[in-house]
Amino acid sequence: MSTRLVVVHPDPTVLAEAAAARLLTRILDVQSVRRPVHVVLTGGTVGIKTLDAAAASPLREAVDWSGVHVWWGDERFLPAGDRDRNETQAREALLDDLVASSGLPARNVHAVPARGVGPDDASTPEESAAAYAAELAAFAADGDTVPAFDVLLLGMGPDGHVASLFPGHPALSAPGAVVGVHASPKPPPERVTLTFASIGHAREVWVVAAGAEKAEQAAAALADGPVTEVPAVRAVGHDRTLWLLDAAAAAGRG
């Protein structure tokens, strides 16, 4: 049975540093019992600050990065290298350095296909989603559509969205592993996201959120509010769910 734990840190800086240490320790712990390790990253302010903190941590050198695969929970459907792509920000914060100096194989960084006309690009969010679903399936166990992610990081918006699954949006009930998103209420309007089915396949899901503007929806999600109003309520790991909050984001709890 899945368990849920809420951990509150005093401010966004400590939250990011603690989440980074927790992430690196989780990878090390998993590597002691099985390989490879599958990690799903998130974007957003705290998500990227977490990767910045991981880059600066001495624990990063203890990880055998050759056995780690990196994925994304969602992506903005923009050209490769665009500053607003989660991939671009994650590469600058951590991944390019790991590839260059810490043994992370470039082929283990599984980016969502970008908008473009190149061989690795896609012309529509649906084409990108289909290609990413195929990539995920290639690393899944027989009968599964995605790997059993060891940890899946998610941010949460002030509206309670996670990944690119927004309140009242049709993508909330999308079938399959990955879906293209149109008319996102948050720009850019076109995106690609894992579905809740894929998110729920993760062994552990961590929701990382900071700021007073997140407090109401964090409290609603932790009180099991309706998914159509607070999608984060369905961000649940198969084994464990962690809510990693700063004090401001946790202020709405009972």
Rank of each mutant, 00 (worst) to 15 (best):
L244M: 12
F196C: 04
V40H: 11
F139Q: 15
V117I: 11
D74N: 07
G168P: 11
H169N: 00
F77P: 11
G155Y: 09
T228I: 14
S123E: 14
Y132H: 12
D64F: 10
P105M: 00
S101I: 04
A197W: 09
P36W: 13
G168H: 13
V208L: 13
L95W: 15
L136I: 03
S57L: 05
A134T: 04
Q89P: 08
N108H: 15
P231K: 03
A248M: 01
A55L: 05
D29R: 12
L245S: 15
H201G: 07
A140D: 10
S173R: 15
P167A: 01
P188E: 05
F196E: 03
G160D: 12
G81V: 02
D74T: 03
V117C: 10
L152C: 14
P170I: 02
D96M: 00
L172C: 15
L59G: 06
R60G: 01
D29G: 14
S128E: 11
T88Y: 07
V112T: 02
L194I: 04
D84C: 12
G118R: 13
L28G: 14
P119N: 06
V207G: 06
V151C: 08
G47R: 00
A248N: 03
S164I: 00
A133V: 01
A140M: 10
R203D: 14
R85G: 00
S32W: 07
A219L: 05
P189A: 15
H69K: 06
D96C: 03
F166W: 06
G103S: 00
D150T: 02
G67S: 15
R107Y: 11
A163S: 04
G118Q: 05
L242D: 09
G180M: 02
P175V: 06
R203I: 11
R4K: 06
A106I: 05
S198N: 13
G157S: 07
R60C: 01
R60W: 00
R234P: 04
H182L: 10
A174D: 10
A210H: 07
F139M: 15
P189G: 07
V68L: 14
A141N: 11
E87V: 03
